[in-house]
């Protein structure tokens, strides 16, 4: 038996909106300690990893480990039934054929229930090695989204260069070439800070199209954390306060 209740249902709505354009069918791993999900996009260029801790739920019960195969596209349709200030409860029995989702608004006395049919997915589970990232950039999530959108109109590929003084996003295309360079900015307004932790410079190229999809998650956190290591995938990380973390891994473009 699995049951989890989230008072701030909006967070779950945002999480589903943040991943629905990247992954299609996912296995949701339920355990007594929390909920996790790992899935690749259809072209195997990006990997989404979500971890939610049981502590972040108003009520959480999972007697055993369970795997719930879910079509994210269908889950997104069901989540549309939720108002932004609904409380959301997820329920599934052992060997369940569906996931019960309940939206409650205690103020308006409105309750919505939906049994989402589960699917069987034989997805390969990848092991993500613990990596010591030699460059970690913490940047305002709105600002990073804006930079990616603007650069995408100039090129499909962005080269990210880090060193102790700045992080640089450069593009080159038939329009011309240029770069956005962000230095360390410890402005008193916390959410405007750009923090660089660089022990080793990194220079890699990535497809901006994926960064734009990842940035859908910027509604979850005012900061985006970029973790880079030469020859390793980029990690774009969004911390979900009091609940967990949503990570996107993007394979770099490499010389053939």
């Amino acid at each position: 038996m699995f049951e989890a209740k989230l008072t701030e249902g909006l967070i779950l709505k945002k999480i589903v909106e943040s991943i629905k354009d990247i992954v299609t069918d996912v296995n949701i791993d339920i355990s007594p300690s929390g909920i996790s999900l790992q899935a690749m996009d259809s072209s195997h260029v990006a990997l989404v990893s979500l971890n939610l801790s049981m502590d972040g739920f108003e009520h959480y019960r999972a007697d055993t480990n369970m795997v719930l195969g879910v079509s994210i596209a269908n889950l997104a349709k069901v989540m549309k039934l939720a108002d932004n200030n609904d409380q959301i409860t997820l329920q599934a029995d052992q060997e369940a054929t569906h996931l019960k989702i309940i939206f409650e608004n205690p103020k308006t006395e409105r309750t919505t229930e939906f049994n989402l049919n589960l699917i069987t997915i034989d997805s390969e589970h990848l092991a993500i090695p613990e990596t010591e990232y030699s460059s970690v950039v913490t940047i305002n999530s709105g600002e990073f989204s804006k930079i990616c959108k603007e650069l995408f109109s100039l090129s499909e590929t962005v080269q990210i260069t880090t060193n102790t003084d700045y992080v640089q996003f450069s593009v080159e295309g038939e329009v011309g070439s240029g770069q956005v360079r962000l230095g360390h900015n410890d402005s008193e307004k916390k959410e405007d800070q750009t923090i660089l932790e660089v022990s080793e410079s990194v220079q890699q190229q990535f497809a901006i199209r994926y960064l734009n999809m990842f940035n859908k998650a910027s509604t979850l956190s005012s900061f985006t954390r970029l973790c880079l290591h030469q020859e390793q995938p980029l990690v774009v990380e969004f911390k979900i306060d009091n609940l967990g973390v949503l990570k996107y891994f993007l394979a770099p473009k490499i010389s053939d």
């Binding site: 690749m40 195997h44 260029v45 990006a46 990997l47 390969e124 589970h125 990848l126 092991a127 993500i128 090695p129 590929t157 190229q205 497809a207 390793q232 995938p233 891994f249 993007l250 394979a251 770099p252 473009k253 490499i254 010389s255 053939d256």
Partner: peptide, 14 residues
């Protein structure tokens, strides 16, 4: 020209 790598190249099947 740089080619898009496959993410599975970096992560291994347990």
């Amino acid at each position: 020209l740089k080619l898009q790598a496959d993410i599975r190249k970096f992560f291994f099947k347990p």
